[in-house]
Design a protein around this nucleic acid. Structure first.
Length: 277
DNA sequence: ATTTTCCCCTGCCGGC
DNA sequence: TGCCGGCAGGGGAAAA
């Protein structure tokens, strides 16, 4: 599933290719992608525009256009963005297509059709209305300090894992990297968030940043449908320590990794390293 | 106010 | 071999 490292990998690839290119034509094949706005309206809004930069907020990817309009994309579960230098498009689950003035193309493929595309217009309240309260602190930014994490956890009575999955608090963590970060920090996923002591909070803060950095460096994890912006696999899947590894020996203590359900999400952890709450 | 449940959608996998 | 139920999960709305 595309989480922060996967989306950041795609962003970096697109940000050295798209800026300066003009969108010759936009085609939206699935009306659900742009709803409630119509495909026609989005196509008209994109045609002829030049991409200025490619940005990311949490798991959201934005093509910032000349004039300040912003095409916001979310890949959700199975979305894929694939840039090609030519117009030969081989995409099984194609939902949208951008053709640039030099003949290159960007496709949005998405087997399960959960992904979304919105066009935020400059000079309207689109930007504020869309972003307000949607995403919290960027975990790889300088803003995300140990103190900030401690403040987010303070007085929270719910378990730590669902809290870390809340995009409005920390932006970009998903099921996979939360499992990996909690393991690295030796914190059980069901611990009450506000009950972590100072040392545990500090370990968790470091673990989140470390795991995300390593994953970005590895180009993301291709555990199922994820491919990067050029259609290639990442290599983080081989570096996962507990996620999807039920029954395998814990890399730290050799006790078999276990799987349970937390907040309705498949959750992997080491019963020895991550003490019961 | 915060936390939990449900739903969207389709490929895949195990069981029979 | 083929059918079928269950599972996967990001996020947002609805319910608790």
């Amino acid at each position: 599933m595309p989480e922060l490292p996967e989306v950041e990998t795609i962003r970096r690839q697109l940000d050295v290719r798209l800026p300066g290119r003009r969108i010759e034509r936009a085609t939206v094949l699935d009306p659900k992608l742009t709803a409630p706005e119509s495909p026609q309206s989005i196509e008209d809004g994109l045609g002829g525009r030049v991409v200025r930069t490619v940005a990311r907020r949490g798991k959201y990817l934005s093509l910032v256009l000349d004039g300040g309009d912003e095409l916001v994309l979310h890949l959700r579960m199975t979305g894929r963005l694939h840039w090609r230098s030519g117009s030969e498009v081989d995409e099984r689950y194609l939902r949208a297509l951008l053709t640039f003035d030099d003949g290159s193309t960007l496709t949005f493929g998405d087997a399960r059709r959960f992904g979304t595309a919105r066009l935020l217009r400059a000079g309207s309240d689109d930007h504020a209305a869309y972003w307000d309260g949607r995403v919290g602190v960027e975990p790889l930014s300088a803003d995300f300090t140990g103190r900030v994490l401690a403040e987010l956890l303070a007085a929270r009575r719910g378990p730590i894992k669902p809290l870390l999955l809340n995009q409005a608090l920390v932006a970009g963590l998903g099921n996979m990297y939360v499992d990996e970060a909690l393991f690295a920090a030796r914190v059980h996923p069901l611990r009450v968030a506000g009950g972590l002591d100072a040392d545990e909070t500090r370990r968790l803060h470091r673990a989140i940043r470390d795991r995300l950095r390593v994953a970005v460096e590895a180009g993301g994890a291709s555990i199922d449908s994820y491919r990067d912006g050029l259609g290639e696999r990442g290599s983080m899947q081989g570096l996962l320590r507990v996620h999807l590894r039920a029954g395998d020996p814990c890399p730290r203590c050799r006790v078999p990794v276990r799987k349970t359900s937390v907040g309705g999400r498949g959750t992997y952890w080491c019963p020895s390293c991550q003490e019961d709450p």
